[in-house]
Write a protein that binds this DNA or RNA. Sequence first.
DNA 1: ATCTAATCGAGACGGTACGTCGAGTCTTCCC
DNA 2: GGGAAGACTCGACGTACCGTCTCGATTAGAT
Lengths: 206, 206, 206, 206
Amino acid sequence: MPEEEVPRGRGRPRCEDSRARILDAGLELLEELSFAEITADAIAERAGASRSAIYRWWSNKDTVLVEALREAVAQELPFPDTGNLREDIRLQLENFIKLLTGRRARIFTAFVAAAQSDPEVAETFQRIWREPRRAALKAGLERHRGKQLRDDADLEMILDALYGPLYYRLLTGNKRFSDGYAEALTRIVFEGIANRDWFHHNGRSF
Amino acid sequence: MPEEEVPRGRGRPRCEDSRARILDAGLELLEELSFAEITADAIAERAGASRSAIYRWWSNKDTVLVEALREAVAQELPFPDTGNLREDIRLQLENFIKLLTGRRARIFTAFVAAAQSDPEVAETFQRIWREPRRAALKAGLERHRGKQLRDDADLEMILDALYGPLYYRLLTGNKRFSDGYAEALTRIVFEGIANRDWFHHNGRSF
Amino acid sequence: MPEEEVPRGRGRPRCEDSRARILDAGLELLEELSFAEITADAIAERAGASRSAIYRWWSNKDTVLVEALREAVAQELPFPDTGNLREDIRLQLENFIKLLTGRRARIFTAFVAAAQSDPEVAETFQRIWREPRRAALKAGLERHRGKQLRDDADLEMILDALYGPLYYRLLTGNKRFSDGYAEALTRIVFEGIANRDWFHHNGRSF
Amino acid sequence: MPEEEVPRGRGRPRCEDSRARILDAGLELLEELSFAEITADAIAERAGASRSAIYRWWSNKDTVLVEALREAVAQELPFPDTGNLREDIRLQLENFIKLLTGRRARIFTAFVAAAQSDPEVAETFQRIWREPRRAALKAGLERHRGKQLRDDADLEMILDALYGPLYYRLLTGNKRFSDGYAEALTRIVFEGIANRDWFHHNGRSF
DNA sequence: ATCTAATCGAGACGGTACGTCGAGTCTTCCC
DNA sequence: GGGAAGACTCGACGTACCGTCTCGATTAGAT
């Protein structure tokens, strides 16, 4: 399946390198500055491109940054499957924390901040990050329903309970996570969602 | 105790009414627009004041909004004390949800968004909202430690587990909370923090 | 009669000095460059002002130059009255040639050139320069009608015959005028307009 | 005689049709707009050509217009020879006025306007229009020197006296010429240049 | 009852970034 | 190799806010 319909019309083809450099420049700047502090000139200069090259492909400065964000977070973060639900959850949290404490953390905060006032950013965030992540986690949990996971588990609620604390700390706290944070959070939440009967019958503790 | 050292020199005294109108105007605008979209002119016009009146008393436009936010959220949100920890938690969540779904919700999101790029806003948010709220909740929980609350409960973690989901939904979700949201969240978290022994000895279920 | 209605409203008064400096800067630049080559930045920089100061008072760059032109040519160039019509004409041509060969010559050419495409410039040129000059000359000629000037003289035509060659040379020729140019032109035109009878009766040659 | 040295190398030959269409387009636009208002895109579009076709053969947009002007005014405007100098002059003025009031008038004004700031345009105007026209008129006048024309006639001056009023009116006036304009102008100028003695001896009045 | 000093509204000032437009160059495909 | 298409860099345009400033008018306490 072809990635995109490439009519390959006449004329000089779009300089794909420049597009990439512009997005990269936007991303780099997002690691240092907020949406509003980033100027079109700064993006152009860092990309070694011209301001008009930006406005040819993006309707305004902000959409460049939105697309940069989109590309940046497009990486997968698959829900693990060790057979042990508790461990799966802990690992998933661990991996996500790794993301949120890395170089790209500022990008997340910029993204969420921008989403508060720009519906397009909000929509993009939903579509390319939140929903895929939640869908994967939901599917992973669903596999265990009636077994390690309670029969009547409210998945939406569980997702909030797992992801919420991480975002909360990132956005309103000191942005630091102690070593045992994933384990500690798992400990609290898992009891509330685990199927006590199943563990009892299978002679396993949690 | 004197509120502030008022030397009360000569000259026309500050028009306290104008100060209040400016802050109110800022607050109103925050319910509609983001930090960056609000202009000094807009605040002045809505307040029926002049731009100079703003810059005379605040160093720049953003500090007006920060102060407006500060006054707006200065209201107390005390942790309840019914004797029943689970109920206290549920009520606290309920009350907070009420706040987050009211007219003032947008102010919270604006505040958090601005905090991502403006350290002063971040510091203010910490000092006047986050820390007081967390301190109250911590004290409320501490009263129950060793009794309804597990002996080894990690309060910081519990706070994250309770507040996190709410902020998460407000900032990255659809901003809506179902009727039973507080109850559902309580159900999940409470099992992980409750002192099972105490409830066993006291013949109470949770 | 007051020169201008000065309501002296509130607010900081317009910096008249800056206005003058901007117009002067425009004028200076007009001596070196064409309308199109002059940028708003160049005007602002030379005037020691900001671009916004320009756009606050003039709707666009060109209107600054138009006003500069207006002020520049506002000087009087009265028609002489020596009693001798031929000498009056020669002197008037001499004086105008002096203007057209001076530092300000380029301003005239710029003005006329701009008038070809900008109706506002054209209208301004008519109103503040062409018509006043022609009116003065007309009045001067009319005084002699029936005496030194033929009874049936067509003033509009005479004006064209006198001024036309000068503009023609300035705009399409080498812009240089020989020493005897005024005299030579007078010699040609005067015979065609002089009242031969009057000179005959008064025993004067021309 | 070969029109131009055409080495006729390999490859596709220049599309002469496109060249003509581009020049025509330029000319058409000059009838509506000024030099500065005409864009390369507009020329290309109206010519049904591409911008590259323009820049392949002309160094820049303005040279296209200059060449268009050159071709447009290349038409002859020969000085008549009826044997009667006064009538020759009147006819020449009449013909020129016809040109200046026709569809192509705007081209003249555009040309002269552009010449004020672009030396290349000025030089072209001199070479292909002004000098040839003046040379023809000079030759026509010279034929009569010592006869109908005064012996000491200053031809340069006479040329200015005849053409000047027309350009003056076209460039700075209302661009309209009354029906008897040529006659009226001739009347004024002719007396100043006619050889009174010759007419006296030949028993002719003027 | 003045005088004095700080406030208030109004609005001009120098800056900085925006997004648009046109110029002239360059790079591809198609003939 | 010419021609159309169209992306590229560059630079000026006119707009919108920013935060600063300078006015006249106002308003109290101090004299």
